[in-house]
Simulated assay, not measured.
Amino acid sequence: MLIDNHNRKINYLRLAVTDRCNLRCNYCMPSEGINFAKNNKLFTIEELVKLSEIVVSQGIDKIRITGGEPFVRKDLMVLLRKLAVLNGLNDISITTNATLIGPYISELKQLGITNINVSLDAINKETFNKITRRDTYDTVYSNLIKLISEGFNVRINFIVLDGQNTEDIISILELMKHYNVSIRFLEEMPFNGGSKEFSTIKWDYKSIFNHIKTAFPKIEKLESPATSTSINYKIKGHKSTFGLIPSFSRTFCGSCNRLRISATGDVITCLYAKPSNNLRAILREGNSDEAVKQQILKAVGSRAKTGFEAQKKYDGIFSNSMTSIGG
């Protein structure tokens, strides 16, 4: 079992399989992209399987596959097939932009990998294209509806961007009200590859809630797990639910149970912190599983208590892009 230095149980790993993405969302990176890692700097599938086996032996029972865009990796399904039969791993989930997932939906269902987060920051096609700088809306929407229709547990991640997509907040709630889906509105974070700096935001989770309440006054707050990053609600008459994620306000830090490992092997104990150490080299040097475990224990044993505390320790943390951190 992994227990951090603030007595928090760590049982959830966000595991990035690539830093590459086929979209160029303007809140994530500059239009020209970032300096993506060379292939030899990324974990191989065999290394990702080995790493997963190690962390599960330490008490990790939930792994979320992230990127970049995970399905950019042509060999992703090889990893997922291995994880699906890994003893002790109870929950495998994926965060995706849903541009490339279509051909794999049937097999994902067969493997029991049914927890899918779809990044969708606009329901208006023109707005979507402006944010992503790509014309893939029809594909994304088609795959989203297919996932919902096939019975996947789908959560839509919608990052609220001042002056860009706020008009779509009510629209997406209205559009999805007949579906068994959760729409989660996230505060914008400044991990955009240095393309934009800010220290405050207009659309924090309270503002988002008040905006929703003006259109849907009959809202019920739902009970959420103690480790949940979202505050969850249900609108009367809607089959769907919605959540608010205070990713910039950071109200959920006290119950954080998450660890991140980037596609290049960096151990990241908080989005607002620098990497603690790197596991790729340790694996490639043929060190024992115990050596990897010790590095993970070291990282977990020196976590900041909150994202604000972590941010104070590091200059230039916001020059990172979310695609290189691991979503």
Rank of each mutant, 00 (worst) to 15 (best):
I54C: 00
R260L: 08
P190H: 13
E223Q: 14
W203E: 06
C21Y: 05
M322Q: 13
L271R: 02
P225S: 13
V118E: 03
Y12Q: 04
F191E: 01
G193Y: 00
F248Y: 10
V55R: 01
P225Y: 09
S276H: 09
D135N: 15
N180P: 03
S302Q: 12
P190E: 12
E126A: 14
R14C: 06
K221F: 08
F185T: 07
G243P: 02
E32F: 15
I113F: 05
L222A: 09
I169K: 01
S247W: 02
R184L: 08
T18Q: 02
I101R: 05
E309M: 11
M77K: 06
F216V: 07
L51R: 04
R133F: 11
A98V: 07
Y179V: 02
K146T: 15
N124P: 09
I131G: 07
E107N: 09
N7D: 14
N90K: 15
F318E: 08
S262A: 06
F36A: 10
G68Y: 00
C28S: 12
N232Q: 12
G194V: 13
L279G: 00
L144Q: 04
N278F: 06
L120V: 12
S302E: 13
D168C: 09
V292L: 11
I148E: 02
N7I: 09
K202T: 15
I34N: 01
R14A: 02
L89Y: 07
N257V: 03
F191N: 01
L244W: 02
V160K: 08
I245G: 04
S106V: 11
L175A: 13
K109H: 12
S149G: 05
M77D: 07
K38L: 13
C28M: 10
V292W: 04
I101F: 07
Y272G: 01
V300P: 08
I282N: 00
S262L: 04
P275M: 10
S321P: 07
A281H: 06
I170A: 09
V160I: 11
E188F: 04
N287W: 00
L283D: 00
S224A: 15
V55G: 09
I183Q: 04
Y141I: 15
L86Y: 05
D19A: 11
H211L: 15
E47M: 06
D168N: 14
G286I: 05
Y137D: 06
G327R: 06
S240M: 10
S247G: 02
I10D: 03
I235K: 00
S106N: 13
H211M: 12
L15H: 05
V55M: 03
I63W: 03
I105Q: 07
Y104L: 07
S31Y: 14
Y314H: 14
G307C: 03
Q58F: 07
R8W: 12
L15A: 09
I156K: 03
I63S: 01
N157P: 05
K293S: 11
T44H: 06
V85T: 14
K213S: 12
L244Q: 03
I113T: 01
K298D: 13
S288C: 00
I282S: 06
I231S: 08
S195W: 06
N97Y: 10
S195I: 14
K62H: 13
N40E: 14
F71Q: 06
N22V: 13
H211R: 11
N7Q: 15
L100G: 05
N277K: 09
